[in-house]
């Protein structure tokens, strides 16, 4: 391969020509806005007729957002709490549905078509209309007996359950892509593994816990990452609404909005980091088994 000295160099040149457009796009449409946003977050930004006036504030915007403005830490914690409930439920729900839809039975195509429908329909726009119409919750929950039962629930778990039931549509509708991911994962498991287990006398539950789930770990991980990004970037997120409203307000302006945006982004990075740490072990095992030649 390395007969000529210039071979490696030429290969790199060709590779660079392939990646160059993306790098230009990344710099212009992602990196520049991101760093400009960081720069603005350290300033007080005022609109002048022909230019923007920046007043260097150091971390004043961040301090104000975290310590003085009660709304921001509140909203951030609210987002954190909501995602702590919603994200595991979406993933577990997607996992259960994927297990069912992966079984072979007549009519599977029809059910799959119905369950993946939200992939097309999930726009924040539509969801807010349907939630406004009381379509966000399951209709039998609106009956009197169900209401009485729910009203009896109290404590942390009761509140959590209430949130989940009230947002059931969101859970159903935001789990389409994850279901696709997990089904694909299940189909990547070698069928002979199941056969060997069955011959050894393993029951269905044993197979699920000892073979399917461990083999699915990387896919569950990807589903969690996808869910986090999806939930954190959806336009109807409370914090994002605050950011948008602050960016339009005269008193606070872009600088303050940018500071909140960066706080929000850091929160998201922390959550992603925690997830990666939790899954490092199980992913490591899978990773090493994958490196074996097949």
């Amino acid at each position: 391969m390395r007969k000529k000295l210039g071979y490696e160099g030429r290969q790199k040149l060709v590779g660079t020509s392939f990646i160059a457009p993306w790098v230009i796009g990344f710099l212009a449409f992602t990196a520049f806005p991101l760093f400009y946003c960081l720069y603005m977050s350290l300033n007080k930004v005022t609109f002048m007729t022909d230019h923007l006036q920046m007043e260097w504030l150091w971390f004043e915007n961040f301090r104000k957002a975290l310590l003085e403005d009660a709304e921001i830490p509140n909203k951030l914690l609210q987002t954190l709490g909501q995602s702590a409930i919603i994200i595991p439920i979406i993933v577990v729900f997607a996992l259960i549905m994927a297990l069912m839809l992966n079984a072979k039975f007549p009519g599977r195509g029809l059910f799959r078509a119905i369950f993946f429908l939200p992939v097309v329909l999930t726009s924040g726009n539509l969801i807010s209309i349907l939630t406004d119409q009381g379509q966000g919750t399951i209709s039998f929950l609106q009956s009197d007996t169900a209401q009485a039962l729910i009203a009896n629930l109290s404590g942390t778990w009761g509140t959590a359950l209430k949130t989940v039931l009230a947002n059931f549509l969101v859970i159903l509708w935001y789990s389409g892509v994850q279901m696709l991911l997990l089904i694909a994962g299940m189909q990547s498991i070698n069928p002979s593994t199941f056969e060997a287990a069955r011959i050894d006398g393993a029951g269905k539950w044993e197979i699920l816990w000892t073979i399917t789930l461990p083999a699915l770990m990387p896919f569950i991980f990807i589903s969690i990452i996808y869910t986090i990004v999806d939930q954190f970037t959806t336009s109807y997120n409370p914090v994002l609404e605050v950011i948008t409203s602050h960016s339009r307000s005269i008193n606070t302006g872009y600088g303050y909005a940018s500071a909140i945006a960066w706080l929000y982004f850091s929160l998201m990075l922390i959550i992603l980091g925690v997830i990666i740490l939790i899954f490092r072990k199980s992913l490591g095992i899978i990773g090493s088994s994958k490196r074996r030649p097949s």
């Binding site: 790098v23 990344f26 992602t30 806005p33 336009s235 994002l240 948008t244 940018s258 945006a261």
Partner: peptide
């Protein structure tokens, strides 16, 4: 650049929309 790709995947568009 691969790290950049991952970062650009997770950035909420709302945080960069002003610039």
């Amino acid at each position: 650049l691969f790290v950049c790709l991952m970062v650009s995947y997770i950035i909420p568009p709302q945080t960069v929309f002003i610039p």
